[in-house]
């Protein structure tokens, strides 16, 4: 059976995963935008997009493009989201062994040090 263009688009939206960490589809993103989300942070709050281990590195630009298209603005005018540390996931056990008074900006190496608990 031949599918209409609308039907094909709908199927496509429903199946395309935009945020791979949190399994969020294009359809869910478009629904949130239709409900009034206008910024990347609002999409994060509603859908957890960009809140997984990759911290939005994969989906951020795709989301910005969706918002820009819907709002009729250039991508450059979409408010950037808040970036949260840590840049890379770190185990609680490792964090608990950070040495006292590690100099600022040297957290990485102090993590390796591994003071005993």
């Amino acid at each position: 059976m031949k599918r209409s263009v609308e039907e094909r688009n709908w199927l496509e939206q429903r199946n395309v995963i935009v945020c791979r960490c949190e399994d969020v589809t294009l359809e869910e993103i478009r629904r949130a935008i239709a409900q009034g989300a206008t910024t990347l942070d609002e999409l994060k709050r509603l859908l957890r997009v960009g809140m997984g281990p990759c911290q939005g590195r994969t989906c951020r630009e795709l989301l910005a493009r969706e918002l820009a298209e819907h709002l009729g603005k250039p991508v450059a005018e979409i408010m950037p989201p808040t970036f949260r540390p840590p840049a890379k996931p770190v185990k609680l056990g490792l964090l608990s062994r950070m040495v006292e008074n590690a100099p600022r900006g040297d957290e990485g190496s102090s993590l390796e040090g591994g003071e005993s608990r």
């Binding site: 809140m51 997984g52 281990p53 911290q55 949260r84 540390p85 840590p86 996931p89 770190v90 185990k91 609680l92 056990g93 964090l95 608990s96 608990r117």
Partner: peptide, 17 residues
């Protein structure tokens, strides 16, 4: 937290705020 829930040791922190 590891004092009261030591089994969380291998869980990774992905975000702090």
């Amino acid at each position: 937290i590891l004092r009261i829930l030591p089994a969380l040791e291998s869980l990774r922190v992905v975000r702090q705020w």
